[in-house]
Write a protein that binds this DNA or RNA. Structure first.
Lengths: 231, 231
DNA sequence: CAGCACTGTGGCTTTTATAGCAACAGGCGG
DNA sequence: CCGCCTGTTGCTATAAAAGCCACAGTGCTG
């Protein structure tokens, strides 16, 4: 729901911000402008402004990567709604109970971003911020959340219509399942809240007989998180 | 270091974003405009744009609070530089070794923002995002990091000159100490990186004789984090 | 119930901030 | 040294943004 007069500079500035943050390495002005299809000078000014604000960090060789101000912003957000403080212990328990890899993720464009990932044999304190984003088509979380996006979302972000259909199907069912035959793993996801902007995913090797139990356990966690007014 | 032509809309939009996130409750347009000294319609358009992007969440009664997109942005940033995945286990160990409350914090305006706080008898998984920001003058982290701000920072943010002096002194010493006599606790902080944008703080009851040991332990952790190229 | 004081939002016009083009300086490799 | 890339800036035209006003809605009080 855009306001009648949106602020296009803000929109573009935040697009530049995410483009720089999402890059695997600190990125140069011209390279980022090419990737985003923006004019170079404009990109440079937006990057410079963001760096001045501390949201990006300018390296000695003139490239831009995430800055401390982003963490500050995130900390303020997380403190305001208590999302992680509530979710992390729950997800850790779910991982221990199911022995699956447990993830909390959200959809951004055509990718899934992981807020936290709990895995067997991995320190739970490394769950936050250790996983890079992932193409949507390989993610039960992504496919599921796609089901709630407004019409045109898929087309606008280069997502195949077949995935959109899968998303709609998952929405009707209320959960999603993705098989990865080459890796002999599968993953299922359940939504948090309504409309859901976050989802819990479980992945590993599990039989068809176990699906309902895993789904129900994850759904119970999702319900507890949703009932705490998490956006 | 501002670019020659900074983008003022981006600056103001991000100011509005932080103003909304920093509020204790979802905040209305006019109230936020009053707090920030901005014109109402402008504020409303910026808020609406941010809500459309998912960075803010618009409640049913027309107020704005943090949205899921902020967490997505934070997750991308954290994944890009691995800050939390590296810092959290280290800080947890430091808390167990010292029996102090251990915090990772940064400076924003005249306040300290806590990225993580580890305390005795508290689940480490609740360390992230469970603490609200704090006035700078009561925080060893804040005073310490103030020492590295550019001239005019204190004046621009309504921080007393005495605190600025304290900050400069802490910078020269390389760490800071704050006593809270009414609570019979004290806290000390050491910087991470150079110039530091983050700091580790230890707080609790400890004697003068123990200061050097605590400081050295925290300094060792800070050095390990700084050596991993964290901004 | 009516009035009042607040609220969020949009339309229209003016203003000014922004965008784009061209230029410059620097770095790197052949 | 030259060519090709880089990040950055100045200047001017333009279009995006800002501000004012109005409207509809909500909640509280008498």
């Amino acid at each position: 729901m855009l306001p009648a007069q949106p602020n296009q500079s803000l929109i573009d500035g935040l697009e530049v911000l995410l483009g720089a943050v999402d890059a695997a390495e600190p990125v140069g002005v011209r390279e980022l402008a090419r990737r985003l299809g923006l004019e170079t000078t404009r990109t440079q000014r937006l990057l410079g402004t963001l760096a001045h604000l501390g949201l990006l960090h300018r390296t000695d060789n003139g490239r831009y990567g995430p800055g401390t101000g982003l963490h500050v912003l995130a900390a303020a957000a997380t403190a305001a709604n208590g999302l992680l403080a509530k979710a992390l212990p729950e997800l850790d328990r779910l991982q221990r109970a199911t022995k699956m890899t447990v993830a909390l993720g959200s959809l951004w464009r055509d990718r899934v971003v992981y807020l936290a990932v709990f895995a067997k044999d991995r320190d739970p304190l490394t769950a936050v911020g250790a996983s890079r984003s992932y193409p949507i088509q390989r993610s039960s979380i992504g496919v599921l959340l796609l089901g709630w996006q407004e019409p045109g979302y898929a087309a606008a972000h280069g997502i195949a219509p077949a995935l959109e259909t899968q998303g709609a199907s998952a929405r009707r069912r209320g959960w999603s399942l993705i098989d990865q035959p080459t890796e002999q793993t599968r993953s299922l996801a359940v939504p948090i809240g309504d409309p859901p902007r976050l989802a819990i995913g479980l992945s590993g090797s599990f039989s068809d007989a176990r699906i309902a139990d895993l789904r129900d356990q994850a759904t119970a966690v999702a319900a507890r998180l949703a009932s705490q007014d998490i956006p």
